[in-house]
Design a protein around this nucleic acid. Sequence first.
DNA 1: AGCACGCCGACT
DNA 2: GTCGGCGTGCTC
Length: 701
Amino acid sequence: MVRLTVAVQTPQHAAIDSLLHYESEWSLAPGTLVRVPLGRRDVLGIVWNEQSAPGRSPPPDGLRPVSEALSALAPLPPAWCELVRFAAAYYQRSIGELALSALPPDLRKLGNVALERRLNRLAAATLPAAAPQDTAPEPTEEQAQAIAALLPAIEAPAGADADAPPPVLLHGATGSGKTEVYLRLAAEALARGRQVLMMVPEINLTPQLLQRVAERFPRHRLASQHSGMTPAQRLNAWLLVAGGQADIVLGTRLAIFAPLSRLGLVIVDEEHDASYKQQEGARYSARDLAVYRARLEKVPVLLGSATPSLESWQRAIEGRYRLLRMAHRVGEPASDAGSAHGHHPVVRIIDTARLAAAGGPKTDPPVLAPPLLAAIEQRIARGEQSLLLLNRRGYAPVLHCPDCGWKSECPHCSAWRVFHKADRTLRCHHCSFTEAVPRACPVCGNLDIHPIGRGTEKLHEQVAAALPQARVARIDADSTRRAGELSAQLAAVHAGEVDVLVGTQMVTKGHDFRRITLVAAVNPDGALFAGDFRAPERLFALLLQAAGRAGRDARAAAASEMWVQTANPQHPLFDALVRHDFESFANAQLAQRQRAGLPPFSHLVLLRAEAREADVAQRFLQAARDAALNLPLAEGATFYAPVPAPVAKVAGFERRQMLVESVNRALLQRLLAEWTPLLPPLRAAHKGIARWAIDVDPQAI
DNA sequence: AGCACGCCGACT
DNA sequence: GTCGGCGTGCTC
């Protein structure tokens, strides 16, 4: 009999560790999937290569035996286990929680017999008949240079004692053909028998991209992983990878944990995208883990974006990442003297403050400035399309009674309920609490209650009224709620059945609209002064990406326009936008971040807590802070006082948060390792804490 | 987290 | 007399 350490899923605050011990007749390799008894149930576990955390109670005598080893599947690769171990330590979660959450949920239900049957069926499935080869276009000069820069690391993998190749940041303008670079490099890795991990943001994993990859590599098996898949599809895709049959994994952030054993190249497309950061459970950044994984496995990693994250940009400036640039659109010669930054849509900034003043005090300013409206009419006359962006769905963000001052607040959240005219409801966008719109003010009975502000529904209505000849459509989370609606609406746009498209930012990402030659941000000012320090970075990326929707190729780009309506036209962000100058925007932002001691010049951690009573959450965080300040390492970090979260109450729970900041990441990690074990007992001592979580490198504070 | 055991109200 | 409310407690 041998004693095994097994990682199982136990919750963060459970009194037991997630590494438990069992006995087995045979020694099992680390990474082997097993079923083990835990309490009264049988759970899925992974044989682990290390003992339980020091400080935990030692394993009791009289261990229970492993129920079953899932020997139909090869043990998960050592590099996979190491990635999980690192991620668990870095993001302050248990190994078991992280490891098990990286497996498809349906795997938990499978015994060895069922598993074997499924694997056999998958192995028997032949590759789909070679689809017509995607004709690979001749690379542009810039593309060829980017490919040449990565090629040596793919051709000659780093040896055991060599350093990993440095990460590469590809700063490529929209339309410069980053995907073609990815595909060519992938082809090189595949030709050498290596596997490719290609990650895209959630919204970007469109059927078009999947199809393009599949058509380019008809001889290779592709496994995709994204949240739109059914549990069974997810399981099969994962088994294809774990069984070593998949050559390409194309997926969203979860794909970072794909158990590839012949990894040869990692690609992170739109590396700045916020959806790479997991927002619940283990709050990992798949982009950061991609860089770690590539270093661990000594394979090249390519981070691509038209608007890189300031974190990656700073590393490129410091020389820790290699920077490659592609400034020109495909179809436009790199030597074109037309512009230093290539042919991109002309950006026009409209001062809405002046517009309002000109209209006089009595009249409301028009939704769209007259010159913008005229430009859209021109597009319609030419058979071209326009895209209007407004990052607010619903008809109006709040309903208001002018007599008594009542507003449509949510009874469960510190937020207004949004007026949705289509189904005449008031809906809370935080907790989904929905009621019919009252006929009269619920406080004073006044019949004359008004919507304030504007959402996409109202914009749609107003644009349709202003442009009676136009076919206006709207795409947002409400109009695409049911399965298939999004693709149907997108198809209508592609087919030219729409003249003006109104939408939230969900339409700005990834979709390749060939006929759109005008994009307008109707009111982006909210993001300009949002409390979060990353708001300008996100707005710039959004606007530049939106501009990229217009005139996807160089021929149309020259005639394309990006309009921005703002009451703050003098804001430096718009200056940089007009010049399509990411670099000067990024450098200015970095200078500000450095002065303020914000990331990437410092490292942040948030401790969040939720309770029915605000002061319960507050006292818990205060106690956690006091405990931290007693630790010897505490001097190396700043523990700020607990404050209400940006939305202080959601679904009846008061949310408080506490920020920890340090310039020294290694020290912060050691401090967290000492601090987090103190938190479960503290939670127990503070009755009424519904949830708490540590967020390392939070996305917003 | 599950999933038990454990003591107090309205039903065939 | 039972079915069942969710309050505390444990899981190698």
